[in-house]
Design a protein around this nucleic acid. Sequence first.
RNA 1: GCCGGGAUGGCGGAAUCGGCAGACGCAGAGGACUUAAAAUCCUCCAAUAGGUGACUAUUGUGCGGGUUCAAGUCCCGCUCCCGGCACCA
Length: 817
Amino acid sequence: MRPQRPDRYDVKAVESRWQIEWERQHLYTVGSAKDLPKFYCLEQFPYPSGHLHMGHVRVYTLGDVVARYRRMNGYRVLHPMGWDAFGLPAENAAIKSGVAPRVSTMANIAYMKTQMRQMGLSFDWACEVTTSEPDYYRFTQELFLMFYERGLAYRKAGPVNWCPSCETVLANEQVEDGVCWRCEAPVTKRDLTQWYFKITDYAERLLQDLDGLDWPQDIVTQQRNWIGKSTGAEVVFKVPATQDAITVFTTRPDTLFGATYVVLAPEHPLVTRLIAGLPSEQAVNDFVARERVISDIERTAETSEKRGIFTGAYAVHPLTGAQVPIWVGNYVLADYGTGAVMGVPSHDERDFRFARQYHLPMVTVVRPPGQGGGDLEAPTEAYTGAGILVGSGEFSGLDSEAAKAAIAGRLQDKGLGGPRITYRMRDWLISRQRYWGAPIPIVHCPQCGIVPVPVSELPVRLPDEATFTGRGESPLAQDEQWVCTTCPHCGGAARRETDTMDTFVDSSWYYYRYTSSDSDRPFDARQVRYWMPVDEYVGGKEHAVLHLLYSRFFTKVLYDVGWVPTAEPFQRLLPQGMVVYRGKKMSKSKGNTLSPESIMNDWGADATRVFMLFAAPPEKDFEWKEAGVEGAYRFLQRVYRLAVRDLEPEDGKRAEADPIVRRLTARTAYKVSEDVNRRSFNTAVSALMELTNGLYQHWSDLSLEVRRQGLETLVVLLAPFAPHLADELWHELGHQESVHREPWPGYDAKLLVDPEVEVAVQINGKVRFKMTVSAELDADGLGAQALADSRMAHYVEDRQLVKLVAVPGRLVNVVVR
RNA sequence: GCCGGGAUGGCGGAAUCGGCAGACGCAGAGGACUUAAAAUCCUCCAAUAGGUGACUAUUGUGCGGGUUCAAGUCCCGCUCCCGGCACCA
């Protein structure tokens, strides 16, 4: 007899006991067992804001289940954690409170680490990285230099997105609906010289390689949309008057004979040259000046009217030789394609509206298939579909598809364009006018120009002291002592680059650093070869384009220089949904935040984890419900009460239910394994609940052996989900080792099938009764038995048997007329 | 406008390959235990109609069609919701 137990366990005591014990045993270090298969389980590292939020609790719980499951299944698991520690909030806090960013960041990290411990997460802290520490950012800088050497980092002047609230520029990916992705302030335009990464060089590969990934469809689609590939042609319109040429991009070269004008974006560099000395010069300049100050939001708004102005100049149609007027129009984007388009009003909605407004000629050159004559000169709307070419010289009579190739080919022959592919994605703007980021390791020398800092002189350290005013230039630019340096090339006086890198650069390679965080190179090639790619990557959907696209780009560059073994970093992706509270996304401004501290305090880490997993499939948003955690808590207490029961059967009791529970136990082991493999954690938890219910139900009819086997299986299966309680009960059941060192339970496949099964008998597709038959019974036997059943007579009398369908183990369908 | 995803009881969700819709949990109802309550354990719980009742019949997975012995699942046409892209030439 075991001593009487209370009917509840003390959650706090149990959880902290095992947290201490696991740490003492270094239970989650990677270990050196190289003969085991590897598994790299990664979750997006957090920005150290000071506290975990519910979203973090969800990601890390999901990842932890996978990591623990793999370990128990005999994998050597890398499950690291670190800190995406550079970023604006620390700097803004410094402006407000005067605490240096590094000081507040380190304090935040220390606190969040204790929260992660309280969650019972199985990280190997030996791999920890902090992107804001010199021993990390020196390698971010080194990678920048490698990009620079390969021509993948370059400086360019031009209009950029500026967030007035963050006081810095933003990459295209970081502007969402015209507002800053972080602070939601409307983004404006500025003309600045900035550093870029040439991600567009990789557009095609970033697109192609999506096919080989085990990623959810919606994320793949988002990346595809973002890259935005268009296939078409370039067409050159020469401008004899100034010896210039306007190149336009079109996806519809088949409509070229319908081009009656050419439109340039207001920012197009040729505008000034074309109008020089013309009577229209002043008017066009005024127009351009007006349009340029209008924000992107307004300019791209649906309601925005099309405005344009004739430059007074003419270009030559490359195939007909006709003179076409050159316009400047607000509906042409400077940074897509070539910043110029040909106007084909008859076959493009926008051109049609523009032409109608300014009374430009329209020529129909594509006729819908199967349609005869009609008015060619005055269409009432644009026909944008494919069709048969008319009025297109030698190309008349071709269908659109053939004509696209033929016309693009002809342009190429004449040296006036040719087939061309463009992408919507732009180069990645990485400069930031802020202090708390990795300094771009570049020196500006009056003699030598732009000079990279030699790798041997890295890191370019951030000054410890800085003045945070929150206004004007970056604190680095105001630090004369820091800015003034010598040129690595000529030794003369020079100035440092004062921009720091976008924090997305830091997070584009951290998963490599984890594999060898003590390396004196960015990472150890041998370790990376062994561990990469990441086998499971868990993170938020908001990074569908941002972080995931940048990381894929980084990996391709690193792959090309031979530093990493694969061209894709994340084989399997598990994007998790949001935790919603009171019907809305949690946010401070809405006042509906939930603190993980108080929840874990009230219910414990295990119940919090179990509810998170049980409430919904991982990718779905779910609503946090107090009653839900309470349910998870009740379930765990129920398991506890069962596990501390006396295992010895009472006198005179027989083991009648043994076969049932043996099969239930085996089926649960099978189901939980399958479910975790397909990331269906909610149904895995429900299977554990069913086993628990089954043990309760049959307890008094079970032998000692089956009781023990059922309980032990339950506890081991529970270990990835509720790690503290599982370890507690494992010891309670008499074991000395941690349950987390136990191998994952197997099962006897024979036990998965019941010897007898209940099959439904349908008459004309409706279930009329059920029969219990041997599972072995084949289709013929099953059909025969159904027909012979006394309950059948009632349904088939006076009717004719038309068809008999029998599916062994499932059902019988008798079709009668 | 284009692209993707989705819609199942009062609620969250399950149904993995076309084979018994609603597992598991929450909420709710009833019972046992208790002086009582909480906790716990057990039972019930899609809708409609009929029956005291075990039950019987019909309907039912956003809507309308179709394929099939059989459809939440496949096909065609819609509605609505969520997400992405959008004057992208």
